[in-house]
Nucleic acid binder design. Structure first.
Lengths: 363, 363
DNA sequence: TTGAAAGCGCTAACAC
DNA sequence: GTGTTAGCGCTTTCAA
């Protein structure tokens, strides 16, 4: 980890630059009472002006404005909400696996897009796919009184989390269905997507198809594995366990897994990498071994550079930004009082052929 | 934008699943008074138990615990802080350009890494490099009483933002120095990095070197442009304005810019793409035109797939996650009361040679 | 070991 | 138009 150094020679000091003039005793933040005092009005009048309520004389408004500006008054949203007895804090929390995975970052973008339209702020944090961490974050944000949650669920029984949320705090899950509870979910048609990918590889003449996936406890991963097996079965192929590599979370896991698969006595001639990081790791190993143009590869999730690698990466493209928008929309429906049974929005993934997935099996 | 549909056939209803039993009148969240009432103790005693204060009888603790659990009591952090008259909300805000750019997502990761160690929550939002939006978000988070800010500054005069923050709310800027104010900053040695990149291309025999950069109002972009010009000058080359393409924010901007550069009468034989998205756009156009192995390219910012493209992308690698960690560390020093002149931490970028930057000029 | 009272910064109802 | 009173959920005195 990069450390902010304490020794002086690492940084450039800027003491000489002209500084902004600042009030001497700015320690305590100005309060409404301070403003009222300065403007010579009552505290309630200040409240009216600040909140744009009607029935205040122009002159009074001007006086109050002068005071708020001189004192750099900023309303305390927490206190206001408390007084208002309001549940609506105009903020929601987003819990995702890790922000530095572009797939989740895109979900954030989609959520934010919708939240911003509504003037709602998004608080984000990473669970790193740890259920305990997820629960802790839910509690942390609840005590900060968010209006709702969008969550990419970690593996494990979510009854505890649902319990925390109770009935009045809505939560929409994304990417993956939470284990053990009924809830609103936005997810890809993972099983169908895996079937499409597998069928595509089978059509290329492949019979030994490797599978790279993450934690099979996750519905997402399990569905993809099931789809892969479905399609092999339909082709009359008995799915071999040795061709399945699970627990792939980061690229290095995928590298190890791909290396193992390629080292088998009868190695796969094609791979389905069911996660963005899985595809990256697989490409890395294939490239190292000079197999990029020999072993077919279909990835999952679109990436910025999928079209630039060699061969270009064929993928089952999801729409993570769309996941985020849809989840946020549903969440706001719930916040607005929608009271119907939990539903799952299933978004189809689509095959994008770019080359890597169209490599044919050696004949 | 993907829309959560209202028609029924798009989603799967899950009314039949077994639901968790839930309290009937769960509308109002349980308060400390509710707990006190149920446990048959005073509100203060509940407070003591909840906060783990000493001097409570074991039996009382047990009663209170029972009540908190039965009522699903969750403390209201806002009210607690209000009562405590405390400025410390154990939360900070992170304002970045856009979350779906992996460079900024990595900054988030670095900030979160440090914040988590301290038990501090990170609230994130995107400014989209719009100063007005940045200021609005600063105000929004201030009224939510965060303890401090980490900000990737938008272009434009930051005196207004600094004014908002006042003297008591610390802010550390990342990636880019804010215009018009003295502040703590973590940034790469942008000028030196651009010089290194340019020198590297010059060493490959190139004399016509194109430059792709973003908004020159940003110190980051301006410094890189300056470094590029520095080095051309040292090589006795007069920097040509026609070889400079600014305002590159997203990949499509870079595509247009690269196309323009390649269409010049005397087109560049090498490119320095001073932003991750600039490099992606440049690669796309070079690939389209079959020039990937003819025109040299040095990018900036490391990407997941830099080693997988063809040719592999040479870059000036920054450490955005490190930026985030360092900025957060500095911020916490400030929150803890550090009172010294604003400083700038300059982190060197390093050249990673992978192929695209080592293509020699045609002789 | 426990509780009553006051008040954090603000808004709500009602007065004036 | 404007001010007064009460109280949001909690913590702090301080007393019992």
């Amino acid at each position: 980890m990069l450390v902010w150094p304490t020794s002086a020679h690492h940084w450039r000091c800027e003491a000489d630059r002209e500084e902004i003039t600042m009030a001497k005793d700015d320690r305590r933040r100005a309060t409404m009472r301070d403003v009222a005092h300065r403007a010579g009005v009552s505290i309630k009048t200040v409240s009216r002006v600040v909140n744009g309520e009607p029935n205040v004389a122009e002159a009074t408004i001007a006086k109050v404005r002068e005071a708020t500006e001189a004192l750099r008054y900023l309303p305390d949203a927490a206190a206001a909400n408390l007084a208002r007895g309001v549940r609506d804090t105009r903020s929601i929390a987003l819990l995702i696996s890790a922000m530095d995975n572009p797939f989740y970052a895109s979900i954030f973008r989609g959520v934010e897009e919708v939240a911003t339209l509504r003037g709602v702020v998004v608080f984000a944090a990473s669970t790193h796919m740890d259920l305990a961490k997820e629960a802790a974050l839910v509690a942390a944000f609840m005590s900060r009184r968010v209006d709702g949650f969008v969550v990419v669920p970690a593996p494990g029984d979510h009854r505890g989390v649902a319990d925390l949320l109770g009935t009045h705090l809505p939560c929409v899950y994304v990417d993956c269905a939470p284990e053990g509870i009924a809830a609103d979910v936005v997810t890809a048609d993972n099983r169908a997507a895996a079937r499409t990918a597998t069928r595509h590889l089978l059509a290329g003449g492949h019979r030994r198809i490797g599978f790279l996936g993450d934690d099979a406890q996750l519905s997402t991963a399990a569905d993809r594995l099931a789809g892969y097996r479905d399609e092999l079965g339909r082709a009359g192929i008995v799915p071999a366990d040795e061709l399945v590599e699970l627990g792939v979370l980061v690229a290095s896991d995928a590298e190890a897994g791909t290396a193992r698969l390629l080292g088998l006595d009868d190695p796969p001639t094609a791979l389905f990498a069911s996660r963005n990081m899985a595809a990256i790791g697989a490409m890395r190993i294939l490239k190292q071994r000079g197999l990029s143009h020999r072993v077919a590869l279909v990835g999952m999730d679109e990436m910025d550079m999928s079209d630039l690698v060699d061969p270009a990466l064929s993928v089952m493209a999801q729409d993570p930004r769309g996941f985020g928008s849809a989840a946020a929309q549903r969440l706001f429906q719930r916040i607005d009082g929608l009271d119907e049974a939990p539903a799952t929005l299933i978004v189809p993934a689509r095959l994008i052929e770019r080359g890597s997935g169209e490599i044919r099996a050696p004949s």
